[in-house]
Design a protein around this nucleic acid. Sequence first.
DNA 1: CATGAATGAGGTTTCATTCAT
DNA 2: TATGAATGAAACCTCATTCAT
Lengths: 212, 212, 212, 212
Amino acid sequence: MARRETALRPRKTPVQARSLHTVEAIFDATIQVLLDQGAERLSTSRVAERAGVSVGTLYQYFPNKQSLLAAVLERHLLRVVASVEQACAAAKGQPVAAIAAAVVGAFVDAKFVEPAASRALYAVAAEVGGTEVVARLTQRSQLALCDLLATCSDRAFDQLMTISFVLSTSVMGPVQGLLVAQAPPTVIAAVRAHLVAMATAYLRSVGVRRAP
Amino acid sequence: MARRETALRPRKTPVQARSLHTVEAIFDATIQVLLDQGAERLSTSRVAERAGVSVGTLYQYFPNKQSLLAAVLERHLLRVVASVEQACAAAKGQPVAAIAAAVVGAFVDAKFVEPAASRALYAVAAEVGGTEVVARLTQRSQLALCDLLATCSDRAFDQLMTISFVLSTSVMGPVQGLLVAQAPPTVIAAVRAHLVAMATAYLRSVGVRRAP
Amino acid sequence: MARRETALRPRKTPVQARSLHTVEAIFDATIQVLLDQGAERLSTSRVAERAGVSVGTLYQYFPNKQSLLAAVLERHLLRVVASVEQACAAAKGQPVAAIAAAVVGAFVDAKFVEPAASRALYAVAAEVGGTEVVARLTQRSQLALCDLLATCSDRAFDQLMTISFVLSTSVMGPVQGLLVAQAPPTVIAAVRAHLVAMATAYLRSVGVRRAP
Amino acid sequence: MARRETALRPRKTPVQARSLHTVEAIFDATIQVLLDQGAERLSTSRVAERAGVSVGTLYQYFPNKQSLLAAVLERHLLRVVASVEQACAAAKGQPVAAIAAAVVGAFVDAKFVEPAASRALYAVAAEVGGTEVVARLTQRSQLALCDLLATCSDRAFDQLMTISFVLSTSVMGPVQGLLVAQAPPTVIAAVRAHLVAMATAYLRSVGVRRAP
DNA sequence: CATGAATGAGGTTTCATTCAT
DNA sequence: TATGAATGAAACCTCATTCAT
């Protein structure tokens, strides 16, 4: 298990400017190939070609295909999680409505910063190597959400873990739906508003009113 | 497009008992290989071996690998959709709480009838060939939900499409989370209850009260 | 270890006539490539091409390159060992001179039945996977030799294991020397005679005279 | 041919202390990688890494991989040959028993000075590039042995070349057997004694008694 | 109809070697 | 002079698919 963990980690951390650029190019190429050809046709050589480097170079940064995919996925989810964590930190002590708007909004917005990447990586997340990354980062979001809910000004919550689990995961389905349908901004905005409303209603119904 | 449609459909509709049994065995083997080895290592020969038939036989029922996957996915989702449609039909004219309980409950329960299959097919659904099947069947659920919501006894809804979209997709994330974590029945039950609560609260908050 | 053992074993035992012929062709091709290009340039594709089959076919009979090499080596050494065992069985109860002549002669002769194969497989035997095969089969020769020496009519031996080890291995060096030099038959014959003489002298000097 | 000769020779003869140390480190690293990973997985980068230098540095001392292997092999065999030659020179004019003890003992002992290297280089010696080195140095041993045998005090030999060939090569098999089995010192000593006995008996039986 | 051996394109990965820094 | 990133040919191996039996 520890061994596998290692195998999924990048081979070396790029420090030089050129290396960083190379890795970035490989990441972008991975997303593009994923979008153009699908997960089934994603090959390391195709990624390398698209990135404008040789296969050997790719393998100097990633010990195998899985580690590349894990890294791309991690980079993407890390941004989303960071965004959510930041929103959670900023919304502390606020009432339910503000919390729901902040967290759900942050998640949805983060997913649509790079909609192509979000869409492309969905298949990767479901693969064998991806679930671990997803699980790890999802947990971080949920922890931040737990902490936040505990500070809510107008509601007290029991079963914090369940609530934060439901809240954070329930947004994923609609977002994914919008992504695959390549929905236009107006539709996205409408759904986003509904999700905030749903989260607010949910938290109100499940929390115990608390004196301000 | 027409060509592709054809290629993804099973080669012949098995009517004889033996054929049916064979196809069933192939379907089950597909799920098992998917769970044991992952989507990347799913090969037609492995499926055939697991099913106890030869590769040639497999190719007599499915013209290619994609059609097999599409068929397995379709069979699975069809059951879920059927279950949801049935629940929708049965809940017509009921108040919001009953509708939410019926629809969300039906969806969650249907997904956990064969949890292994649900979990295994997640990766397949994200693949190129899978999105079409998913889109088609998801739409059916949403249409049924639309029809149902229009008959709700205590609330009237604007934006029916958006609501049914949000309602049906928001359940997927939590369910998927439970599946990959292989959560125990108690946890599943707790989340299920929360999802019903969330759906109810959402529908109440988004619908306009209506005299009974 | 047990796993590895399995990995070195052929994938399926060929039973049909065509399969047998195919495997035989692969074996021969391996020897030829080994002789033409050396162990370093022995690739599975080159072997397949030389054998007139596709790489896929090769891999249907051998799960990997090592198992192919192990099988070729085993087939070759098995013949040598069989020859030595037969000679050992036939020389039971004979005096030292006859035993030495029989065993050493059998070994040398067996090695020169297919001199090309003997020469080619030398490098293979030294490789990682080869030593196990060599060790196993060498042991069989030594056991047969032990049994034989115990029946010697004019000498009794102490340290049977050491003697049979020395006797069986000491022939290998000269034979290998002749093989790489591609010595002519006259030279081979001369060395063969010397080896018989050496074995006889050794056994006489190390054994205790015994009344007939 | 001349071209090849050049390609197999080290690029520059290191005279400075640091260079010498570097080359030494590369030699040792080669042996270690050979033992740890086998000939198949011996790569220049692995050797360089193990030696604590960069690949570029390695290539400054050796124009290619083969030349490195040839050099390591040569260094090792040269020590063995030197040891044998020295023993041959020292045993001149002695009787058969002393000659056998000196030569066989020198060879065996030399091989066990660095048993790891001896074992590791066995596969290398069998490779295409190695046979030339082996042949050249083996010949030197045999010539020294020829010269020595001609001065034997109690026996006169016909067919000096054949005898020295048999004598020098027949020791290799047993030594190799001990090396791969990683035999303990007691076993090595026992076999060593037997080899001396065998050589003595052989020389006595094949030589013509000569008045002292 | 069923079988499973054969195919060979293509995927992943390694590695000898070079060359800009 | 030393470094090690980059290269890309080539190695090993898999797998969707076909077809003779």
